[in-house]
Write a protein that binds this DNA or RNA. Structure first.
Length: 525
DNA sequence: GCCCCTGCCTC
DNA sequence: TTCGGAG
DNA sequence: CTCCGAAGAGGCAGGGGC
């Protein structure tokens, strides 16, 4: 098992374009080409930028003339049927009437069936642009009828139940869900399992089981709503302790009892966190941005550039503040064009990380960088960590995926403040936490790090010591540094912290114009 | 009290 | 993490 | 190139069972 990860050595090199985070405009270090956003690394990975921070959120060309006056929308939409909904949602955005697809009254809770139908349409579509259109129409419908449900709709569309840093897990996997179906329908677990093998998907199994189910009672639970589904998911996630498994199953059964049509299928895929309809966060964001544009300007069709701009804004905003509970209300209240002002990078909320991207070799890199200044950086073999130090002295640590990791690294959380200079009142750093042998002063392989306890770690129980290798500073003394060049952020970084060997060190880097330096740098191992 | 299965998360 | 498919 | 989805290794945590 010395799998790839452990075979990577600590000395592996990683390089990034010198202007990393703020990709678009500013460059000061060479390479102005439009595709100067990426980096490549020599050995196996490299870092890449995150979601665009195009600093030019200029005034929208298509200012919304009248934004929120919903009163002029044609009234009600009670005559539409679920079937009709599907037809409407597939229309091109320009031809779509946001009041045509709803089969519930304005202000009423959005039925889960509406969303399930949209998922079903998307499932049958392979073009992401089309998926996005369908979802865009879906969002527009919700905005036009029951905007307060938009947050729930967006969460479910992303297959999330809360921001990732809130540590809310369903705790339901395939096995539990199979049991839940068996429970609910009084079917043998074995039958469910064999069906699962045949159909290949738990959602389909749920659907099939549901339709073959004979309802013995006339009692019919009220239709599911999007909010109900989301709330129940959260309830399931919070269930813990004795009998929690059974309780969770009970909640699932409750949902299943009320599910009809294609609802069971998507309900179970949601519960399994495997939507597999080809739609995920990025596509949802695109749809959301565009829906916002269309909804703001009912009378005129938005220009393509306005739509692109909206997409950029929403992606950027989400990478800075990945919390729909904050973004959606702001979006509904003030519109897409002001969103960036309202939703800023905030300490305490993890920012989307710039990720490395594999390259096939040094030669590939050599070409890419001749003529431009570039930088290389060691890629340490540990765990990514984003450390937030707030004004009040509190610390939070987040993983690569934005999960709160603070409880896993109490040693780091307690020590970081010792490495900052006293004038520093708040900061966010990006770093790699690496297992470290204090006696031998040596970095240990990832394997060792992975044996650390993961939750509620007690300082006294720590056996694997770690060293933090910082490579970026994203926020300092109340101000975001995201608009600055990587090279400049590094300067701030070096100015703001003191290294302590074996505890807190700066990642080894090199900056050059000479492609051949890449090779020599990578030989440092 | 101990062990296993399931879920989740890291790379 | 790496891979492969689709657009 | 971007996005999505699937797969794989190793390992901790929590619950359920005995």
């Amino acid at each position: 098992m010395s799998k790839s990860s452990s075979s990577r050595t600590i000395n592996e090199v990683l390089m990034a374009a010198a202007h990393a985070r703020s990709c678009s405009s500013k460059k000061k270090l060479g390479d102005q080409t439009p595709n100067s956003k990426e980096f490549s690394s020599s050995l196996s990975n490299k870092k890449m930028k995150l979601g665009d921070q195009s600093p030019n959120l200029k005034e929208p060309i298509q200012k919304s003339s009248k934004s929120e006056d919903q009163s002029l929308h044609p009234t009600a939409t009670t005559t539409t049927t679920p079937e009709e909904t599907s037809v409407q949602l597939k229309k091109r955005s320009g031809d779509f009437n946001p009041n045509s697809a709803a089969f519930w009254k304005k202000g009423e809770s959005v039925p889960f069936l509406f969303l399930a139908r949209a998922f079903d349409l998307i499932d049958k579509e392979s073009r992401r642009t089309e998926m996005s259109t369908i979802l865009c129409n879906t969002f527009r419908t919700v905005i036009a009828t029951t905007p307060k449900d938009l947050t729930a709709v967006v969460y479910l569309s992303c297959n999330k139940i809360a921001p990732s840093y809130e540590d809310l897990e369903l705790g339901l996997g395939e096995t539990s869900l199979v049991k839940a179906i068996a429970d609910a329908y009084k079917i043998d677990v074995k039958h469910i399992k064999s069906k699962l093998k045949i159909l290949g998907d738990l959602g389909l199994v749920a659907k099939a089981s549901c339709s073959s189910q004979v309802k013995l009672f006339n009692y019919k639970p009220p239709p599911l709503t999007v909010v109900k589904v989301l709330d129940t998911c959260r309830t399931i996630a919070k269930e813990s302790g004795k009998d929690s498994q059974g309780n969770k199953r009970g909640h699932v059964k409750g949902l299943l009892d009320a599910a009809t049509d294609c609802e069971p299928q998507y309900l179970f895929r949601l519960l399994q966190s495997k939507m597999r309809i080809g739609l995920a966060e990025q596509t949802v964001l695109v749809a959301l941005g565009q829906a916002a544009v269309y909804s703001e300007n009912q009378s005129a069709l938005p220009s393509p550039s306005a739509l692109d701009e909206a997409t950029e804004i929403i992606k950027k905003v989400y990478s800075l503040l990945s919390n729909f509970d904050k973004i959606i209300p702001a979006l509904l209240e003030s519109g897409i064009w002001k969103l960036a002002e309202l939703c800023r990078f905030t300490p305490g909320v993890p920012i989307g990380p710039m990720l490395a991207k594999p390259t096939r070799g040094v030669s590939e890199i050599l070409k890419k960088f001749h003529g431009s200044e570039f930088t290389c950086e060691y890629k340490y073999d540990g765990e990514r960590a984003q450390i937030h130090y707030m004004e009040d002295g509190s610390v939070e640590i987040y993983s690569r995926n934005g999960e709160r990791n603070t409880g896993k690294f109490p040693d780091v959380a307690n020590s970081v403040k010792r490495f900052k200079k006293s004038s520093i009142t708040s900061f966010v750093i990006d770093c790699e936490v690496v297992a470290y042998d204090v006696d031998k002063q040596k970095i240990l392989p990832f394997q060792i790090l992975s044996t650390r306890a993961r939750k509620g770690v007690n300082m006294n129980d720590i056996t694997v010591k770690v060293c933090v290798f910082v490579f970026d500073l994203l926020y300092l003394n109340g101000e975001s540094l995201l608009e600055e060049q990587l090279i400049d952020r590094r300067e701030h970084l070096y100015d703001s912290f003191e290294e302590v060997t074996g505890e807190f060190q700066f990642a080894t880097t090199m900056v050059s114009y000479e492609p051949k330096d890449i090779q020599s740098f990578s030989k440092l191992l």
